[in-house]
């Protein structure tokens, strides 16, 4: 069973055992607008929770994608740099940014579940 968690920076993280897939949420892609550039981390890159992990840029602005938890990158989404608009079209599916190992599962406790994130977005807008 996978579980979906969210950060206050509008990343989603799908947890399967000790690994996770990370991307940005539907709300985040909407706020960002048309994504024109993506930089994903390479395999083996060490990530600290809250640290910069990837880059996403729209026509107007550059944003960082932060690591939701600590761990090590196992795969960056190699398809994204050549098709950055995938982030707009399918942010929580094909638009994933990277997969990683989870070195400290207790960090997941600080993240929001779907209901809490929905409320977080509603309150912010």
């Amino acid at each position: 069973m996978s579980q979906l968690r969210f950060t206050k920076d509008h990343e989603w993280v799908r947890v399967e055992g000790t690994t996770a897939t990370v991307g940005i949420t539907e709300f985040a892609q909407g706020q960002l607008g048309d994504v024109v550039f993506v930089e994903v981390p390479t395999k083996g890159k060490a990530l600290n929770a809250g640290g910069e992990a990837a880059v996403v840029e729209s026509v107007k602005a550059a944003s960082e994608v932060y690591a939701p938890v600590s761990g090590s990158v196992t795969e960056g989404n190699a398809a994204l740099p050549d098709a950055p608009d995938t982030v707009n079209k399918d942010p929580q599916g094909a638009g994933w940014f990277f997969k990683m190992t989870i070195s400290n599962p207790s960090e997941l406790d600080a993240l929001m579940d779907q209901a809490a994130y929905d409320k977080f977005v509603a309150d912010a807008s």
Binding site: G33, D34, V36, S58, V59, K60
Partner: peptide, 10 residues
Amino acid sequence: PVQYPLGVLK
């Protein structure tokens, strides 16, 4: 308005 529903790119 910074953009409309069409979006900046389009």
